[in-house]
């Protein structure tokens, strides 16, 4: 009986706490605070010095992806010809099926060019079936957004 009474007092005090300061927050008004390392959907980064993506389409992320959610092709870099860029090849097409992506971050770990990042993007939705397939421009867009938001810098070369 005593423990029941204790429980009643506990819930009474929690009601008081709930009336003053409930734990729940209304969602769109108080958006979820994302931690710095939050891993949202992957995005591609943009090399602002040369004005081209970091990605060369080398396929290492695609080979290491546990769910095979990405595809990419590479092409000769036109900027390499006029010597404004050191990249011999550059990404031509890149596609991530965000429905298959499990946000594990392995692609970021294995990338040799710091070309792919886990952005803070996590509220994607689409109304048609192919809407979850994100193409190069979309990936560069969310990657660029992440770059400006978080002040992301490529790792210094050893």
């Amino acid at each position: 009986m005593l423990s029941t009474v204790k429980g009643m007092i506990q819930t009474l005090s929690s009601t008081w706490r709930g009336l003053r300061k409930p734990v729940t927050k209304l969602y769109p008004e108080n958006p979820t605070v994302l931690q710095n390392r939050f891993m949202g959907f992957p995005g591609l980064t943009w090399d602002k010095d040369i004005d081209e993506p970091f990605c060369t389409g080398c396929m290492v992320c695609i080979r290491n992806c546990p769910t095979q959610c990405m595809t990419a092709t590479m092409k000769d870099n036109p900027k390499f010809a006029d010597e404004s860029s050191k990249r011999r090849k550059i990404v031509d097409e890149f596609e991530i099926n965000l429905n298959r992506c499990i946000l594990c971050g392995i692609c970021v770990d294995v990338c040799n060019f710091d070309a792919i990042v886990m952005t803070h993007e996590h509220e994607e939705s689409g109304s048609y079936r192919d809407g979850s397939r994100m193409k190069l421009d979309g990936l560069l867009e969310i990657g660029g957004k992440y770059q400006t938001q978080s002040g992301w810098k490529p790792a210094p070369k050893d």
Binding site: Q35, F38, I102
Partner: peptide, 14 residues
């Protein structure tokens, strides 16, 4: 939330 700040994910950390 602590896990998220460490590993970047709330459940499937990797």
């Amino acid at each position: 939330t602590l896990f998220e700040s460490i590993s970047g994910a709330r459940m499937m950390h990797n």
